[in-house]
Write a protein that binds this DNA or RNA. Structure first.
Lengths: 300, 300
DNA sequence: TAAAAATACTCCATAGGTATTTTAT
DNA sequence: ATAAAATACCTATGGAGTATTTTTA
């Protein structure tokens, strides 16, 4: 079977056109080199070198093999570096899941920075709700994901890096006159109809909200679900009801919608980057990159 | 040093994820396969397969090696066919010289047909006078060439395929009244000033023309040289003199220029495809193609 | 006649085989 | 208990070495 050694030998002879000097370059002696080339010619069923006992020249077949062999050997010589780069997580691919909500934060910048830092890592994005993400993790179709959940409620069996911890704020139509004092405004609000995220998008967050209402001796009146922040804010604007949303959503200013913060009384919302323990090096690189970005953000 | 055998072994294991079955596919037993993979991992300085004693999985490094190795092996497997194709002249490259004159003939069609028949052969064209072509042949920079010369005077040391044998005809300005009878017209013409090809473009043809004049007891009055047929015809049209040109040039109709044929009395002009004996297979293919084209042409 | 490729043989490194052990399921 | 990988040891093929011959510029 064809092997790289004989190709290296052939290239050496083809480049020097001299068996003796080629043998030197290969750190071997001339006779076995002659034999190796003979064997190669037999295997390929073609005369590669036209030799008189005095002069060596390439045949057309040899000419074409020389080109192809150089290419092949160059590729082969790149293999070790490639593999080691993969081991250190400098290439490979990374399949990243995210719930639509986190798209409003700094994620786009992180991704841009990551692509620049690690051009060898192919990054593919998959928007999916948390439950779908978890299934994808099970099947090994996802390497890491951004998810929102109640504080400390990151999915079990995963490592998590908290990337944001925000209070939930109340979004309400400005046509709805909310009391001045926090205490009375909150009492008012808890009675109002609610627009919420579906439970399957962020189960722990949904449950935390429910718990919050129960703790206050109330039961939430859910009138509508919507799985896009845009949609929720629009529904609030239309007077469908109130909504509890992460504070970063305040960035979504809509005419007719106001946000009201109630300190640390309502549940808070955590955004985390999650991944399986023992993930591929490329994943570790991504986690490291995000952690680094958070640090420099905090420093500023 | 890395070799294809160990890559083949790795690919087999990576694809089956089972040392025993992979060994079967490779027609060997399991223990040496295990050792070969261990050796490969050592050489590459990376763990390629994560194995418990029960299950085998690819590491990220292994994943990337699998891709690269498949590519490399596929390339390697194509080598024998490539070399054999080159040997049979189905690929390679062909550097073809031609004197500008033959461009007016069927050469363009032959080239088109050849490119279609042998897409694996890269064809490069080099316009050059015959003497320059011969020097290029010496330096091994040309594989074949089209040249015009006196009949039977193909350059020594070359094989030649005659592709045309035409009478030379007289080109004259129609303002120059040529006698009706051939005999008297020829006598007239031989006295007139001549526009000719430079000797270095077609030495034997030039010499044949000279010999023709001497045989008739005349000496040609050369008033101008021009190395393009176009130019010669334009000079004739301008009344600079007469010119002897291959009959195929009649295709170049110019207002004010007439052609007159004198049977087989003036020298004839041969166009040949020439090449070194023992040329590369690709050259033989080209010669064969042209010969074939000539045959079908003659048949029609 | 000298330089270079080919031939003839010798040797040993290593790819692969057999037998066995270890371990996770 | 069993399937599968690892380990230990053995064998032999063939790649490389040394000595020599052949050839032609």
């Amino acid at each position: 079977m064809l092997d790289l050694r004989s190709l290296r030998q052939f290239v050496a002879v083809a480049e020097t056109l001299h068996f003796g000097r080629a043998a030197e370059l290969l750190h071997m002696t001339q006779p076995p080199l002659t034999q190796a080339i003979q064997k190669l010619e037999q295997e390929l069923g073609a005369e590669l070198l036209a030799r008189t006992r005095r002069r060596v020249a390439l045949t057309p077949a040899g000419e074409s093999l020389l080109q192809a062999a150089r290419q092949l050997l160059a590729d082969a010589d790149r293999l070790p570096a490639l593999v080691q780069a993969a081991q250190r997580g400098l290439n490979g691919h990374l399949r990243l899941g995210f719930v639509s909500t986190v798209g409003y934060g700094q994620m786009p910048q992180w991704l841009r920075g990551f692509r620049e830092h690690y051009p060898g890592i192919a990054l593919s994005l998959h928007e999916a709700t948390l439950d779908v993400q978890l299934q994808a993790f099970e099947r090994g179709e996802l390497d890491a994901g951004f998810a929102i959940h109640a504080p400390g409620a990151a999915p079990a069996g995963f490592e998590a890096l908290q990337v944001a911890l925000e209070p939930m704020v109340l979004a309400h139509a400005d046509s709805f006159g909310l009391a001045k004092t926090s205490r009375r405004a909150l009492d008012q609000a808890l009675e109002q109809p609610l627009v919420v995220f579906p439970r399957d998008i962020a189960p722990s967050l949904f449950d935390a909200l429910l718990g919050f209402y129960r703790g206050m001796g109330k039961t939430p009146r859910i009138v509508q679900e919507a799985n896009q922040m845009q949609t929720i804010i629009n529904l609030v604007s239309a007077g469908m009801g109130l909504a509890w949303v992460p504070e970063s959503v305040c960035a979504l200013q809509r005419p007719g919608v106001r946000y009201r913060r109630f300190g640390s009384v309502p549940p808070r919302c955590e955004t985390s980057l999650i991944w399986r323990t023992g993930a591929a090096p490329a994943v570790q690189r991504f986690v490291g990159h995000v952690a680094q970005a958070l640090k420099t953000l905090k420093a500023a």
